[in-house]
């Protein structure tokens, strides 16, 4: 599993000389944890859980880091798109309870895909509105950006309250995704976690494909480095940015669906809770770096899962500790984005 992670990284960072050390850290963490945990099967379970969690966090964090890289905009409201996405799955789950409870794998997959599509569409649209109304007037003013995006977060959270009520809502996984799957002697991993890993990897690969093989991806990568020069070549970076913002919000919505099913409980504050984790991830990874975002997500999830097993009390602050250690080593994060 970990080897494959390393391979994925290679495509992520394409042609520039690859800085291997950050890539090796999650692998090293996993290997060091093995003797500490003692039991191989427990280690596998924990690692798979961490990979699932890490990939979900990555999906949610990638949009935030790209938006920052491209336009130097920091969106404290990003977390609310996660909540929006998660709650949108209710629009699908409620009328289609039959599909959820059905033993048919096809219907189960169908309902999950529908949840994802609806969530992405709605949170993407929220993103467009948010960009237009909240963020556009405060470009290049970080202080105001932090304030108004926070204000936007409050408003959208309150709208969720209006439409869905404030109390936590439990949701059920589709029939076939419940329970565990034996993948070897004594080794059981939860099915949904495998699905989360698969979806996460698929999203990551799709993102890499778009970034490395399409013209839009080329523009995004160039724009993260030097937006002004991209404009001087004749491209409207604003339009690109709006697109990336909407896509990032849609990804947050997708992450929200995944996270909702992972927890099987929806709360309005869930997005804000995860936002803290996302901030830690993008700070660790280096603001604006997609590769760093992936490594940061996996690292945070691995450390959180291992410490929760080994020493639950420490797990509460493991993320902060991880962030401090990384920042002491590389103050700009694992992959500092070179800005001009």
């Amino acid at each position: 599993m970990t080897d494959r992670t390393a391979e994925r990284e290679e495509t992520a960072l394409a042609s520039p000389p690859i800085d291997w050390i950050p890539i090796l850290i999650p692998v090293a963490v996993a290997l060091i944890a093995l003797p500490l945990i003692g039991s191989f099967s427990t280690w596998v379970t924990l690692t798979v859980a961490a990979l699932a969690m890490g990939m979900i966090i990555f999906i949610m964090a990638s949009g935030l880091t790209l938006v920052f890289g491209l336009m130097d905009v920091i969106n404290f409201g990003h977390g609310v798109f996660i909540s929006v996405g998660a709650y949108m799955s209710l629009l699908v789950l409620r009328p289609l309870t039959g599909w959820v409870e059905s033993p048919s794998l096809a219907l189960n997959i169908g309902v999950l895909v529908l949840c994802i599509l609806v969530a992405m569409a709605v949170s993407g649209m929220f993103g467009l509105v948010f960009e237009r109304l909240i963020i556009r007037p405060v470009y290049r003013q970080h202080l105001k950006q932090i304030l108004v995006t926070m204000g936007g977060l409050i408003i959208i959270e309150q709208l969720l309250h209006v439409f869905f009520g404030g109390s936590p809502i439990t949701i059920a996984l589709p029939q076939n995704f419940r329970g565990g799957l034996a993948i070897g002697p004594d080794m059981i991993v939860e099915r949904y976690r495998l699905i989360a890993v698969v979806i996460g990897v698929a999203v990551f690969l799709a993102m890499m494909l778009v970034l490395n093989r399409t013209r839009i991806g080329l523009l995004v990568r160039a724009g993260v480095e030097n937006p002004e020069m991209v404009e001087a070549l004749g491209y409207r970076i604003r339009r690109l940015f709006v697109g990336v913002f909407a896509a990032g919000s849609a990804l947050a919505g997708l992450g929200g669906v995944m996270w909702g099913f992972y927890q099987q409980t929806l709360t309005i504050g869930m997005g804000l809770q995860v936002l803290v984790l996302i901030f830690i991830v993008v700070i660790i990874g280096g603001l604006g770096s997609i590769g760093g975002c992936l490594i940061g997500s996996l690292l945070v999830a691995l450390v959180a899962n291992y410490t929760a097993f080994l020493e639950p009390k420490i797990a509460l602050i493991s993320n902060i500790a991880l962030m401090l250690v990384v920042l002491m080593w590389r103050p700009q994060g694992l992959y500092p984005v070179v800005k001009v």
């Binding site: 042609s15 520039p16 013209r215 080329l218 523009l219 990568r221 160039a222 993260v224 480095e225 030097n226 020069m229 991209v230 070549l233 070179v338």
Partner: peptide, 12 residues
């Protein structure tokens, strides 16, 4: 664009 190849720079 230092993260892009020479070809990609020209392509852009």
């Amino acid at each position: 664009f230092s993260g892009l190849t020479v070809r990609e720079n020209l392509l852009l």
